[in-house]
């Protein structure tokens, strides 16, 4: 059990700044997910914490101890890799035991821990098999098992689910969450999948271009994205970002109440409505360009005069609309996210 502190952490590759100064504190037992597009520095950050990447400047503390110069093995961490990195010539048991043996753990203790991990992950019957005899999901469990037996201060997950098919991914996601709650081990988890990030995290760290854009619980990040980038990255379909100029005027003036520095307005697809809500509302008229039924709900692409991209809204059920129909859509004032294009920041930040 331990906290992880990153203090002004930086990483340069030659002239390229991969991580440009990150500050983060992971509380004891917390699961933090680092999410962002590829190349945003999230993997580099994780690998610095693991000790697999040297640190250009800044500090990393695990359990209050500076580990910047420590070997990976001395950091009391365990890591789950994207391709599992199971030792192909060793049995599952051999894989689980290897790290413990290297530490000189007594035989009886090794056996107890391997048995515990096998019970938790239900891989007992697989212990004598070789990795190549396992399915993708089973390999994933063994990789987790290898981390669990170590009983480390922290788990580091590097996109552990991205080699699985969609169905298995959802299943394993739930299992990781359950496991982490049960073991209460401090965890850092890297993914590029925002849905995975939302469902797993105690807190999210959204990264872009080597910088942290926002840190917060998934709901905080969803409800109040701090930057234009976060607004566009979290949520599916993504938030509609519309030039403020194309909305103002007419009856919208009252609902908008925008500050002078706001030039972009964000609207979540699921916070747009076809019926006028009570009280003030933003009103937009447009033409239905495309109707995508996705099962329980439908996505409407609506073209509004004065904007380039159509606005997307999510509606429950199957609206009786056809492509080409003219409709009016509404948004509550509290669901309007104001941004400044230049800075990228939210303009109503409290």
């Amino acid at each position: 059990m331990a906290t992880i502190d990153l203090i002004d952490l930086k990483k340069n590759y030659g002239n390229v700044q991969a991580v440009k100064g990150v500050n983060l504190t992971v509380a004891d037992g917390e699961l933090i997910v680092l999410v962002g597009p590829s190349g945003c520095g999230k993997s580099t950050l994780l690998r610095m914490v693991a000790g697999l990447e040297t640190v250009t400047s800044g500090r990393i503390e695990i359990g209050g101890k500076d580990v910047v110069r420590a070997e990976p093995a001395e950091r009391d961490i365990a890591m789950v890799f994207q391709n599992y990195a199971l030792y192909p010539h060793m049995s599952v048991r051999g894989n689980l035991e290897y790290g413990l043996k290297n530490r000189g753990t007594p035989r009886a203790e090794i056996d107890r821990r391997v048995q515990d991990a096998a019970d938790i992950l239900e891989i007992g019957p697989l212990l004598e098999r070789k990795p190549r005899q396992l399915s993708g999901g089973q390999r994933q469990r063994v990789a987790m098992g290898r981390a669990i037996v170590r009983e480390p201060a922290a788990f580091l997950f590097d996109e552990p689910l991205s080699n699985l098919d969609a169905k298995l991914r959802v299943q394993m996601r739930v299992e990781i969450r359950r496991l982490q709650r049960r073991l209460k081990t401090t965890s850092l988890y890297v993914t590029h999948d925002q849905l995975e990030a939302m469902t797993l995290a105690d807190r999210l760290v959204v990264m872009n271009g080597g910088l942290v854009e926002q840190i917060g619980t998934p709901i905080e990040v969803y409800d109040r994205p701090a930057t234009l980038f976060v607004a566009g990255f979290i949520g599916s379909p993504p938030m509609n970002l519309i030039p403020a100029a194309s909305l103002s005027g007419g009856e919208n003036a009252e609902a908008l109440q925008l500050g002078a520095d706001t030039d972009i307005v964000g609207l979540r697809p699921d916070q747009l409505h076809l019926e006028r809500p009570e009280g003030n509302a933003l009103t937009l008229a447009g033409t239905v360009e495309l109707l995508e039924p996705v099962g329980g709900e439908s996505h409407l692409h609506v073209q509004i005069p004065g904007t380039e991209q159509p606005i997307i809204l999510t509606v429950q059920g199957r609206p009786k609309l056809e492509e080409g129909d003219t409709i009016t859509i509404y948004a509550r004032p509290e669901n309007i996210h104001p941004f400044n294009q230049q800075t990228g920041w939210r303009t109503d930040a409290s």
Binding site: G51, A73, I77, M79, Q82, N83
Partner: peptide, 27 residues
């Protein structure tokens, strides 16, 4: 040989010669 194999071995506490003997030679 995948990079991750060597990284996993390092996290598991294997030094260079141990990795060579335990992982690389058998492979």
């Amino acid at each position: 040989v995948p990079d991750e194999l060597m990284e996993a071995a390092r996290v598991d506490g294997a030094g260079p010669m141990k990795f060579f003997r335990d992982i690389l030679l058998p492979l």
